[in-house]
Design a protein around this nucleic acid. Structure first.
Length: 475
RNA sequence: GGUCCUGUCGUCUAGUGGUUUAGGAUAUCUGGUUCUCAUCCAGAAGAUCGCGGGUUCGAAUCCCGCCAGGAUCACCA
C-alpha cells in the first residue's frame, strides 16, 4: 500500500461546526495511524457563498485540537498550492483534456431554459436528466462558458471502506457541470483532480456524498485515473437524534466549546468515539492511544447523536486528572469578577476544593463565587432544609454563638477545625445534618459548597468569624 | 417521487449462527463515604435486538418482504 495521505477539504463558507471537525479528526487519525500525511485543502470555488474569515476559523479550530496538517495553504508543500482558487489553471488544463477526448461540452442553455425543462419533467412526474437534452451542435469551449461532463451512464458497484459494497443503476448518472461560467470549477470536478494530483489515498467524508459517488466514478474513468479509497463517515446527529447536526439546530463550533472550558483532550476523545470504537470496553483514549488503535474497519455505519451529556462527563474526567497547577493555568480566564483582587495562592486553594465537581470552566464562578464575595442572606436555604426547617430563630442563634466561641480559639487548620466541629456535635448534642448544615449555609449562603472544614480553612479565621457574627445579627 | 444509506437499553456502543438469562459506558434512581453539591464505591431500573415471515437443532447475527428515520437529486460543497 502506498504512503497514506488523507485530506480535510472544507469550503470557507461560514463557521465550521463540530461535525466538520469530526471528519477532520478521522482523516487525521487515519493518516497518523499509518504514519502518513494529513493535508489541508481549502475548497474556495464558490465565490458567492464565501464568508470572510472562514479559512481562519477552520485553521484555528484544527489548531485548537492540535490536529496539525503536514501540507496546507499556509505552510505549502510539494503540491505548491492548497487553495483551489489558486489552482484554476490546473482545472482548466484537465477540463481541456476532457473536451479534447469528447467527454465534455459547452452548455448552451440559459438558466431559464433549464428551469423550464426541469418544470416540465416534474409535471410529467419523470426525473430530470440533462443528458436527455444534450445539444446537437456543441459549441467550442472558450474557458469561460459553462462546461458539462458528458457522462457514460452505467451501473456501478464499488467498495466503501466503511459501508462495504455499494451499488447503483445508470439512472443516477447525468451530465453535470464541471466548470462554471465564472471560470471556477465545481466541487465535483476540482476535488477529483486535486485528490489525484495530491496523491490522496483515502477520501474521508460524510454520508451526504454517497449519492454522488457514481458520477464521480464515471468521471474518474473519463479522466483515466484511479480513484482513492472511499471512507464514508456516519452522520453526526443533532439533539433530537434524527436529523444531521446542523448550524440551524444550534450546532456549535469547536472553538465555542473551547471557550466554554472544554479541553481539547476531552473533545478529541468524544469526537473520536462518535462513530468509532476499538471493540473493547475502553472509553477513555488519549491521543496516542487513538493514533495507535484507530482502525477504519471499526468505523460505524449508523449515525451518532452529539450528546453533550457525555461530552460533559468526559471533560469532567479530564479535569480531575489534571494537576492543580495545570488546571489553575487553564482556568485563569474563568474566575468570577469578584476574584480579581485575590492572591493566586488563595485561588489555588479554592480551585483545589472544586476540581472534582467542575465539568467545564465556565462553571467556575457559580461554584466558587462565595469564596470571593458575600452572597446575600437567603433564609429560604434554612427554611427549606430538612434538618433546620423546624428550628426557632433563637435556637439557631444560640447554636451559632457556641460555634463562634469555639472557633475563636482555632488555628483554622483543617485538622483543628475538624476536631472542633466534632466536639461541637457533642457539646450541642446535635447531628451533623443539623449543625453542619447550619454552619455551611450561613458561611456561604450557597445551595452547595465543598466540605465544611475545608471551606472554613480556606475562608480563614477573620472571614469565618465575621460571617458567623453577621449571620447572628441577620437571623 | 426516484436512488441510496441506516435501524441493539434515553444516549454512545459491544456483539459477524451456539459459554447471551444480550455485555460495557453515560444519563436516571437507591444506599454508603459524619451536612449540601461533587468525586469514589456498591446496587437498581432500563433493549420483546424496527416489524413480519423464512433457513437452521439453534438467529441480534443468514435470506426475503415490510415499516420507520435519514441523505441526495444545484453554475453548493
Amino acid at each position: 500500500m502506498a504512503n497514506t495521505r488523507t485530506r480535510f477539504a472544507p469550503s470557507p463558507t461560514g463557521f465550521m461546526h463540530v461535525g466538520g471537525v469530526r471528519t477532520a479528526l478521522f482523516a487525521w487519525l487515519i493518516a497518523k495511524h499509518s504514519n502518513g500525511q494529513f493535508i489541508l485543502r481549502i475548497e474556495d470555488t464558490d465565490k458567492v457563498r464565501e464568508v470572510e474569515g472562514s479559512e481562519d476559523h477552520i485553521m484555528k479550530s484544527l489548531e485548537f485540537l492540535n490536529l496539525k496538517w503536514d501540507e496546507g495553504p499556509d505552510i505549502g508543500g510539494p503540491c505548491m498550492l492548497y487553495r483551489q482558487s489558486e489552482r484554476l489553471d490546473l482545472y482548466k488544463e484537465w477540463a481541456e483534456k476532457l473536451v479534447q477526448s469528447g467527454r465534455a461540452y459547452t452548455d448552451p442553455y440559459k438558466k431559464e431554459e433549464l428551469e423550464e425543462l426541469r418544470e416540465l419533467a416534474k409535471k410529467n412526474k419523470k426525473p430530470f436528466l440533462f443528458r436527455d437534452h444534450r445539444p446537437e451542435a456543441m459549441p467550442m469551449w472558450d474557458g469561460k462558458k459553462t462546461l458539462r461532463f458528458k457522462s457514460n451512464p452505467k451501473s456501478y458497484t464499488w467498495k466503501d471502506e466503511v459501508l462495504g459494497k455499494l451499488s447503483t443503476g445508470p439512472e443516477v448518472i447525468d451530465d453535470f457541470i464541471i466548470m462554471k461560467s465564472d471560470g471556477y470549477p465545481t466541487y465535483n470536478f476540482a476535488h477529483i483532480v486535486d485528490d489525484y494530483l495530491m496523491k490522496i489515498t483515502h477520501i474521508v467524508r460524510s454520508q451526504e456524498f454517497i449519492s454522488s459517488t457514481p458520477k464521480f466514478l464515471n468521471l474518474y474513468e473519463a479522466l483515466e485515473i484511479e480513484h482513492p479509497l472511499f471512507v464514508t463517515l456516519p452522520p453526526v446527529m443533532g439533539p433530537d437524534g434524527k436529523k444531521k447536526l446542523s448550524k440551524r439546530d444550534g450546532a456549535k463550533g469547536i472553538l465555542d466549546y473551547g471557550r466554554e472550558g472544554y479541553m481539547p483532550e476531552a473533545l478529541i476523545n468524544f469526537l473520536a468515539t462518535l462513530g468509532w470504537n476499538d471493540g473493547s470496553t475502553k472509553e477513555i483514549f488519549n491521543i496516542n492511544e487513538l493514533i495507535a488503535s484507530f482502525d477504519i474497519q471499526r468505523i460505524n455505519r449508523a449515525g451518532a447523536k452529539f450528546d453533550e451529556q457525555r461530552l460533559m462527563w468526559l471533560n469532567g474526567h479530564y479535569i480531575r486528572e489534571l494537576s492543580l497547577d495545570d488546571l489553575f493555568e487553564k482556568v485563569q480566564d474563568y474566575w468570577p469578577q469578584s476574584a480579581t483582587s485575590f492572591e493566586n495562592d488563595y485561588k489555588k486553594k479554592v480551585l483545589g476544593l472544586v476540581q472534582e465537581r467542575l465539568k467545564y470552566f465556565t462553571e467556575l464562578p457559580q461554584l466558587t463565587n462565595f469564596f470571593f464575595e458575600e452572597l446575600p442572606t437567603d433564609k429560604t436555604l434554612i427554611e427549606n432544609n430538612k434538618f433546620l426547617k423546624d428550628y426557632q430563630k433563637d435556637e439557631l442563634i444560640n447554636l451559632l454563638g457556641q460555634v463562634k466561641l469555639s472557633l475563636e480559639s482555632s488555628d483554622f487548620s483543617v485538622e483543628d477545625l475538624t476536631t472542633r466541629l466534632n466536639q461541637l456535635l457533642e457539646t450541642t448534642n446535635k447531628k451533623p445534618g443539623e449543625l453542619f448544615s447550619l454552619i455551611r449555609i450561613v458561611t456561604t449562603w450557597a445551595p452547595a459548597s465543598p466540605a465544611l472544614a475545608d471551606s472554613l480553612a480556606v475562608f480563614g479565621k477573620d472571614k469565618t468569624l465575621h460571617k458567623l457574627s453577621k449571620a447572628i445579627t441577620d437571623l
